[in-house]
């Protein structure tokens, strides 16, 4: 029986964000936007979805009078990502 791929993660931009965040302790919003080649508006919406699912923590503060948003993957997010990768491996093994 195959595990269903987590719909929160099975989307291009959200998966890209989670893949970035899994590799770092924390990352600024601008860094994620730059690496994912996304627009600020779209990225905000997708990060909010990840936040609502409890997969990322978002900290908003000010740096040199400019707003600074920092994102960090949560334990729940790490578990979800690991499950997603495991499920992906199952699908890929069958496809061989």
């Amino acid at each position: 029986m195959f595990k269903e791929l987590d719909p929160i993660l099975h989307s291009q931009l959200r998966l890209a964000v989670m893949s970035l965040l899994i590799a770092v302790k924390e990352a600024e919003f601008t860094f994620i936007r730059e690496k994912t080649n996304s627009t600020a508006g779209n990225l905000s919406v997708q990060i909010q979805k990840l936040k609502d699912a409890g997969y990322v923590d978002v900290v908003k503060q000010f740096k040199d009078n400019y707003p600074l948003t920092t994102c960090k993957i949560t334990k729940k997010g790490i578990n979800a990502f690991e499950d997603y990768v495991k499920a992906l491996q199952q699908y890929l093994q069958v496809g061989k």
């Binding site: 791929l5 099975h10 989307s11 291009q12 931009l13 959200r14 998966l15 890209a16 893949s19 970035l20 899994i22 590799a23 770092v24 860094f31 690496k35 994912t36 080649n37 996304s38 779209n42 919406v45 997708q46 997603y84 990768v85 992906l88 699908y91 890929l92 496809g95």
Partner: peptide, 27 residues
């Protein structure tokens, strides 16, 4: 990067690999 594109398993794997690789070269 668009949001609602239907992903295949290979594409998912490619995104994960690509993003982790991008982070590696960022610091």
């Amino acid at each position: 990067m668009s949001e609602e594109k239907n992903l295949t398993e290979q594409e998912s794997l490619q995104i994960i690999t690509e993003m982790i690789h991008k982070v590696k070269g960022s610091f």
